Amino acid sequence: MKKMIFSILLTTAVLTACGKSVGSMDQTMKGGTPGATESANHSDKGGMDHKAMVTEADKTKAELVKATFTLSNAKPLPNQDTTITVHIQDKDGMSIDKFDVQHEKKMHFIVVSKDLSFFNHIHPDYKGKGEFTVTTQFPNAGEFELIADFVPSGLGAMTKTEWVTTQGSVPEQKAILPDASLTQIVDGKEVTLTFDHLMAGMELNLNFNMKDAQTKQPVADLQPYLGAVGHVVILNQEGGEYLHVHPLEEKASGPDAKFMATFPHSGVFKIWGQFQQNGKVFTVPFVINVP
């Protein structure tokens, strides 16, 4: 079975979409400054090939790549279409043309609010010459982290991140508190998350068990989502550590969907499991405290 690595995303400061023309933001700064990036070793098979820590080789590869995020509106507004362009270049500013397909896509793109209450996993279109574009909406005013997850051919998987601020009156931030119960009802499914053991620094198994919320019958007709029974995204409470997890048994159809991960340290993490049934993707969130 494959091990996993967290991509440590240093987000100690917040950038807004202002400051450059058309909201352009260059993400090459590291060492505790905004836009820091790391790489991860993904696997095209069950689970992901992750290590417990980012290696120096991973960091070196990540330093060969930079990403510039450009928003169609330098001051984006809630509930209005915003087109986000991500331009991937090498350290000399030349466009990187070739990207490996990971789970049916050349880029996975996560939009998450600072308080982790909003989550959106979308997939930009590749326009060629290192340019990806996607149009989306932010639900409210406030700070949002953009996470681009991709694999430049020959360099391994990596993530590049940016923070943006949408305009308007910011709603009260929701506290990120561990769930009292790890059972959620979403779209008529009763989903229970269990672990074989829950401890920082140890490889562990996550299992999502699904039943019909009314009949309590096992859900055994999950459909492939991006080529697998499901996908899991994990972020820590501060939004600085990101893990994109794929299932151990990609062809499973329920009622169990099993994953493997290693939490690098104790603390509060939010988990989003994504699955598909009857042609509709549903997302199940959980907040846990890792001892």
Rank of each mutant, 00 (worst) to 15 (best):
H121R: 13
H121W: 14
I122E: 09
I122L: 12
I122H: 06
H123Y: 14
D125K: 14
Y126Q: 02
K127I: 04
G128K: 02
G130D: 11
E131H: 10
E131C: 12
E131Y: 07
T133K: 15
T133N: 13
T136A: 08
T136S: 11
F138R: 13
P139A: 00
P139K: 03
N140R: 09
A141K: 01
G142M: 12
G142K: 03
E143M: 05
F144Q: 01
F144A: 00
E145G: 14
E145D: 13
L146V: 09
L146R: 03
L146F: 03
I147W: 10
F150H: 12
P152L: 10
G156W: 01
G156P: 06
G156V: 05
G156Y: 02
A157P: 03
M158Y: 01
M158F: 01
M158G: 05
T159W: 11
K160L: 05
E162Q: 12
E162W: 06
W163S: 05
W163L: 11
V164Y: 08
Q167R: 09
Q167K: 15
G168Q: 06
G168P: 04
S169A: 14
E172Q: 00
Q173S: 04
K174L: 05
K174Q: 05
K174A: 01
A175M: 06
A175N: 07
D179N: 07
D179M: 04
S181Y: 00
T183E: 03
Q184A: 04
I185Q: 08
V186A: 03
D187E: 11
D187A: 11
K189D: 01
K189Y: 06
K189V: 07
K189Q: 04
K189F: 05
L193E: 08
T194F: 08
T194W: 08
F195R: 14
H197F: 15
L198F: 08
L198Y: 04
L198T: 08
M199L: 08
G201V: 04
G201F: 00
G201C: 03
M202I: 05
E203I: 01
L204W: 09
N205I: 15
L206E: 07
K211Q: 15
D212I: 14
D212L: 12
A213L: 13
Q214M: 11
T215L: 06
K216S: 06
K216C: 03
K216Q: 07
P218E: 09
V219N: 01
A220T: 12
D221E: 08
L222F: 09
L222A: 06
Y225P: 11
G227S: 09
A228K: 10
A228P: 03
H231M: 04
H231V: 02
V232D: 01
V233G: 02
I234C: 02
L235N: 00
L235E: 01
N236Q: 05
E238Q: 13
G239A: 12
V245T: 07
P247L: 11
L248A: 10
E249D: 15
E250N: 07
K251L: 15
S253L: 03
G254P: 06
K258D: 00
K258W: 00
F259H: 06
M260W: 10
A261S: 03
S266P: 10
S266F: 02
S266R: 13
S266G: 14
